[in-house]
Structure formats: structure tokens, C-alpha cells
């Protein structure tokens, strides 16, 4: 038996990996549910019910999907240009810090002016945070996987310092949290009385915008060309270094919007736990989406549903919520394997 490359895989074959990966992750989860003493069918039933079974559950899932769409887009745009941004977590916090600093009354502007200003400055912060590793990559050939990954830890410690020091809420009873945002700095709810905020709509707009950039603009063409074959892109006269830097700014900015949206839309103040690893989960989302911006929306909804549903399932069936983490991890691993398999076919000698 050996593998033979397939020159021109069909569309169905190219769309197969996410399906296989998700099916595989359900299989792994079933085994684990059995070991934990649950009935797999009941477990999945409870997950689905917990994720979309009620209006409350559905809105919770959409809320949870919002930051994942942003980080998923951030990773997708970078990976497509072969810029391995593992630092969406830090970029998310960069946006969150800017929001927490500017939203607490420093600027007393009406919401229509204040919100866009904060959003843009948040993006700028996230963009600049990725610009450093990108410059190190283009100038000195430093591996951005290492620099962006390690920056996550450095930046989180910096946020921790801010929350214990200059940004600490004097009224916070000693908790490491920032003061509450003023009302003008809060993203309003889409429908009064429901928890879903405009950050979700912003995420959808971002996904469509990125899709248009990818397919319709010269920058999208250049980003794809540099990602596919930087040597040919350079020979053809494309400004390869410039394209990588622009990609970095776009990616960092998108990840920072996740932080802005969480602080301004959902939490109202900055704490060290606003992101349970959304930056890293964004990698899973982007891979499941095959780096397609609209696919990112679908993948983020799926991942959010698993997380939200697993919480409810755990409360009902006493099977640990870690099942959700395992499902995502196994989905990512199987995704990588499935992508490989769609490029080859198995031939029996």
C-alpha cells in the first residue's frame, strides 16, 4: 500500500476533511462518554439541547461564537499568506486593554463617535502587536511561530500587571479587574432584553469583508500568491515583504476586535479571564473552515455550540465538560490528517 498524489481533487473531496474531522471527533467523544459512564446518544442529545435547545441557549451560543469568529478570521487571513500567527490570544487582550482604558470616561464622547474610535484604536493595538514578529520574520528570518506564541505569555503577564496596578478598579473590592465602562462605550444589545450584542453582527460583517478582500482586491490576490509561492510572487514583481506586513496588520487587528467586542459588548470591564483561550481556539476554527472567511463563521458556531452544549450536558449528566476540549482537540488532529488524505489516494500494490 502506498499514497499517490491526486493532481486535481474534486470539490467534494476538498470539502471532505471538516466533515471527516467532526465525525471523528464525535466518535472519540462517544468512547470517552462511555468510559465516563454516560450513554453517548444521551450525551450528544444533551449537548445539542444545551447549545440550541432554547432561545437562551441559542443566544449564548451566538455570544460565544462572536470572539471565535474574530480570532478564526485573524488566523485564517494570516495562515493563508503562510504567516503563522499563534498570537491571536495576545492580540485579543491588546484590543481588550485599549477598550478598557478608553471606555471608562477618558473620552466623554457620544456612543456613535466613541465606539468606532475605540474599535479602530483596538485594532491598531492588535495590529502593532503582530507587526513586531512580522518584521522580525521579514528582516531577520526569525520564526514567527515562536515569537507570537511566546508573546502571548508576556502580554498576559503585562495585562495581569495592569489589573493589579494602574488599571485596577478602586471600587473592585481588591479583585484584579478594571473599572466598568461608561454606557457610551458599551456595544448595545441587538434586541432589548436579550443578551446578544452588536459584536456578533460586527463579526459577521468582518467575515464578509474579508471574503471580499480575498476574492476581489489586489491585496487578497497578493496575500494568496505570497502564501502559495513566495518565490514566484517575488519574481512576478509583487512586494512580498509589504504583503506579509499588511497581512500581519490585518490579522492582528481582527484578533483585537475579539477583545473589544468581549469587553465592550459582553463583560463591561477587563479581567484576566475574558478569554478562555479564544486565540488558540481560533486556530481550530480557521483550520476547520479551510481558511475560508465564511467557513470561519460556520466553524465558530459549531465550536461555540460544543462548548456551550457541553456545559449544559455536564450539569445534567455529570459527564465532565472536558469532553468539549477533547472533541475540539481531536477534531483539529483529524482535520490535519484528513487534509493530507484528500491530497492523496491510497493505492494497493
Amino acid at each position: 500500500m502506498r499514497l499517490e498524489p491526486i493532481a486535481d481533487p474534486s470539490l467534494a473531496r476538498r470539502l471532505l476533511p471538516p466533515v471527516l474531522a467532526i465525525a471523528g471527533s464525535f466518535l472519540v467523544a462517544s468512547l470517552l462518554a462511555l468510559i465516563a459512564g454516560g450513554n453517548p446518544l444521551a450525551v450528544f442529545g444533551a449537548i445539542i439541547k444545551g447549545a440550541v435547545g432554547s432561545k437562551f441557549a441559542l443566544l449564548e451560543t451566538l455570544n460565544r461564537a462572536t470572539p471565535l469568529i474574530f480570532t478564526g478570521l485573524a488566523v485564517a487571513v494570516a495562515f493563508r499568506a503562510k504567516l503563522w500567527n499563534i498570537g491571536a490570544e495576545a492580540q485579543l487582550y491588546a484590543g481588550a486593554v485599549v477598550t478598557a482604558v478608553l471606555g471608562t470616561g477618558v473620552l466623554q464622547w457620544p456612543a456613535a463617535l466613541l465606539l468606532p474610535t475605540i474599535a479602530i484604536l483596538s485594532m491598531l493595538a492588535g495590529a502593532l502587536l503582530l507587526l513586531g514578529p512580522a518584521l522580525l520574520k521579514t528582516r531577520l528570518g526569525v520564526d514567527e511561530v515562536v515569537t507570537t506564541l511566546l508573546l502571548n505569555f508576556i502580554f498576559l503577564l503585562f495585562v495581569s500587571y495592569l489589573l493589579e496596578g494602574p488599571l485596577k478598579d478602586p471600587m473592585g473590592m481588591g479583585w484584579p479587574k478594571s473599572p466598568r465602562l461608561i454606557e457610551e462605550a458599551r456595544l448595545p444589545r441587538i434586541v432589548e432584553g436579550l443578551r446578544l450584542h452588536w459584536g456578533f453582527v460586527l463579526a459577521l460583517i468582518a467575515a464578509v469583508a474579508l471574503w471580499i478582500i480575498n476574492t476581489r482586491t489586489t491585496l487578497g490576490f497578493e496575500m494568496r500568491a505570497v502564501g502559495q509561492n513566495a518565490e514566484a510572487a517575488r519574481f512576478a514583481g509583487m512586494p512580498v515583504t509589504g504583503v506579509i506586513l499588511k497581512t500581519a496588520l490585518l490579522s492582528g487587528g481582527l484578533a483585537a476586535l475579539a477583545g473589544f467586542s468581549e469587553v465592550s459588548g459582553l463583560k463591561g470591564s477587563l479581567t484576566l479571564d475574558i478569554s478562555p483561550g479564544y486565540g488558540y481556539t481560533g486556530i481550530v476554527v480557521a483550520m476547520l473552515a479551510l481558511l475560508h472567511p465564511l467557513g470561519v463563521v460556520a466553524a465558530a458556531l459549531f465550536v461555540a455550540a460544543i462548548f456551550v452544549g457541553a456545559n449544559a450536558m455536564s450539569r445534567a449528566l455529570d459527564v465532565p465538560t472536558y469532553l468539549a476540549d477533547i472533541m475540539l482537540a481531536s477534531a483539529l488532529l483529524m482535520m490535519v490528517l484528513a487534509i493530507l488524505l484528500t491530497k492523496f489516494r491510497v493505492v494497493r500494490d
Binding site: R216, T217, T218, A225, N229, A233, G237
Partner: peptide, 25 residues
């Protein structure tokens, strides 16, 4: 670029000058 189609490869060197306006392809 192997995975680009003929159209994309045909304009690889000239897209910016001849096949784009204000950044739109």
C-alpha cells in the same frame, strides 16, 4: 503558482497596472 488557475497566472506580473483599479481586481 501551481495552484492558481490560468487567469491568475496570466496576470501575475501585470495585475497591478492593467487589471486593477483603486485596489480592486
Amino acid at each position: 503558482i501551481a495552484d492558481f488557475d490560468l487567469t491568475e497566472n496570466a496576470v501575475l506580473e501585470t495585475y497591478a497596472r492593467d487589471f486593477a483599479r483603486h485596489g480592486w481586481m
